[in-house]
């Protein structure tokens, strides 16, 4: 039972990270039907920014709580800037072009950002300090999971709640839902669609960057390529849950995290990815629009 719980929590941790990234995919898709392949790179840039800021602050001898707080905030803000800029440079000029053009532009952006970090920073793996402190109140649970795992799971849960609240109850959230339903109609009733799209990118980037900071602190190292695999997995999770649906993205991520974790734990890690993708195929055969996806016909 203890082993089951260990795997359950490790799957939950992994799923939480996927969820933070998958939210960005699914929100952007919901609003402009674009798969933003550069999203994984935002996650990587968030981790790099936090590393740089944390490094500088450590030199100045700040205390750990201040470092983790400021490094995360700076990483979030910086990544938001990236998300905003990417949308303006790579996607906005192509808004009325065929969807494939924007997709190619997204892949190009992803490659550009990877190589930009590779050249501007380093191709090596970098040591990432364990920013998450060993909270006292969590040590009584340390036989179940490490504090960093709890922090990841709890942070993700908080982000979910805030985001749900934002979408459901604020004016901007309402505008986002309206834009997702019908962009032209939203424009007609006076919603500034460009602003809504920018906000979507900014929020998505912030959650991805948070994921990057948390996982880097948990695993202990980063490199320029870390966003690629995480991005692909999160994309799979978003599709699994039903792309365009926010609860779906979270559910899909958790299902994917648990699938991988339990398969590794009880069968073999050799075919962890194969199994995860077989699961994806099976779900898509029986529910083509994902677990929580709306099954209405797509407007093409």
């Amino acid at each position: 039972m203890g082993y089951f719980l260990d795997l359950f929590l490790s799957g939950l941790t992994r799923g939480s990270i996927y969820a933070l990234i998958a939210l960005g995919y699914t929100m952007v898709y919901g609003i402009i039907q674009l798969i933003n392949f550069a999203h994984g790179e935002i996650y990587m840039i968030g981790a790099f920014t936090a590393l740089i800021v944390a490094g500088v602050l450590t030199i100045y001898g700040w205390n750990q709580m201040a470092i983790i707080f400021i490094a995360s905030i700076v990483a979030l803000l910086y990544s938001m800037g990236y998300g905003y800029t990417i949308e303006k440079i790579a996607y906005k000029p192509l808004r009325h072009a065929p969807r494939l053009s924007a997709l190619i532009s997204a892949i190009g952006m992803s490659l550009f950002l990877q190589n930009y970090v590779l050249l501007a920073q380093t191709s090596d793996f970098m040591l990432f300090p364990s920013l998450i402190p060993d909270f006292k109140f969590l040590t009584s649970f340390s036989h179940i999971a490490r504090p960093s795992e709890f922090v990841i799971i709890i942070s993700t849960a908080i982000v979910m709640v805030l985001l749900t609240f934002f979408i459901k109850f604020t004016k901007t959230g309402k505008a986002m839902r309206a834009t997702a339903q019908d962009r032209q109609m939203a424009m007609l009733v006076g919603i500034d669609v460009n602003r809504v799209i920018s906000i979507t990118f900014i929020i998505g980037s912030a959650t991805a960057a948070l994921g990057g900071v948390l996982i880097a602190s948990h695993i202990g190292q980063i490199n320029f390529y870390m966003g690629f695999i995480a991005g692909i997995k999160a994309f799979v999770a978003a599709v699994l849950g039903g792309i365009g649906s926010m609860p779906g993205a979270v559910l899909g991520s958790l299902v994917l995290g648990w699938t991988e974790s339990f398969f590794t734990g009880y069968v073999s890690s050799d075919y962890e990815d194969v199994f995860a993708f077989i699961f994806l195929v099976l779900i898509l055969i029986f529910r083509p629009s994902g677990i929580l996806g709306r099954s209405d016909t797509q407007k093409v």
Partner: peptide
């Protein structure tokens, strides 16, 4: 005797398995 995927997000599960 197991392989892991280079670049995966997390290796906790395999570490748990080694512990067990």
């Amino acid at each position: 005797f197991e392989g892991v995927t280079p670049g995966a997000v997390d290796y906790s599960a395999i570490v748990q398995k080694v512990a067990r």
